[in-house]
Design a protein around this nucleic acid. Structure first.
Lengths: 141, 141
DNA sequence: ATATATTACTACCTTTTTATAGTATTTAAT
DNA sequence: ATTAAATACTATAAAAAGGTAGTAATATAT
């Protein structure tokens, strides 16, 4: 009931980028700012590009920028892409031992709890975070 | 944002036990019914006893029964005991990279989403599940 | 054209989680 | 006292997640 590290990193990266006004973020820069293991961070940035959140330019002074409008990226979307919630589960509703004709006893309370969480996460976009937490690039710490 | 297997197993076991009317559940019986790896299940049952949810009797015709009233066991409690949510986090609020004077940008939306989930899970006890899903021991499948 | 600052790919290592195996312990029924 | 049906303990194996290293690819500034 907690995010895994990879997802935590991804949210940290996207949240950081969303609340600054740089026009390009290199892996090296993000590594310095966010204290995420360097090589793992790079791999994750590539993944975030493949997932369509970022686009990369591997050129001098290159790095990563958002591939779409911040309004279009909500937190549930990021979590789903990274944790593959839809893909992993044999049961469309979330649990391996939960099958259609003999559902898991915990199915209903769990899904109720989970859907409330997902609702909140879906309603929060990176644009919302930017609005709330934007950091002035001049006194950028 | 998904439960780990161990927690899933634990909820499955406790939910199963809560909705039947046997007076004793052996590891072997639970294994047959729930399709959880046998040896792992046994260890988990011991853990659930140590956590105070069950009590065991290692005697002929022994097994496991609840150690307390079903009303006193809510789902958040089980999850917390198994996933050690309180213990793991250096930040009291849930994230390793989130420190008091420089909180994680995602802190607020994540905590809001999470607390809604926890609220629902806290409000669901095994007694509620029993009431809703109790299975007649005669036609017990 | 070349050098350079960057990302991309692939293989591998480490740590954590999940699962198994062997043996010891418990205690009621006999 | 012995047997037997159960759990308890400890070590280890297998699988998954997290992290590292080396090298290739990209394409612009020079």
């Amino acid at each position: 009931m907690i995010l895994n590290k990879t997802t935590e990193y991804a949210l940290t990266i996207l949240g950081f980028m969303a609340t600054r006004n740089e026009n390009m973020y290199s892996a090296e820069y993000l590594h310095q700012q966010l204290n995420i293991p360097c090589r793992y961070l790079r791999r994750l940035l590539t993944d975030l590009s493949k997932h369509g959140f970022l686009k990369s330019s591997s050129v001098r002074n290159g790095g990563f920028v958002f591939a779409k409008d911040l309004k279009e990226i909500n937190l549930a979307l990021v979590i789903n892409k990274l944790e593959g919630i839809d893909a992993i589960c044999t049961c469309i509703l979330g649990f391996s031992c939960c099958i259609v004709d003999k559902p898991w006893i915990m199915h209903e309370p769990w899904m109720e709890a989970r859907s409330k969480m997902v609702e909140t996460l879906t309603n929060t976009t990176l644009a919302d975070l930017k609005e709330k937490y934007q950091i002035d690039p001049i006194k950028n710490i």
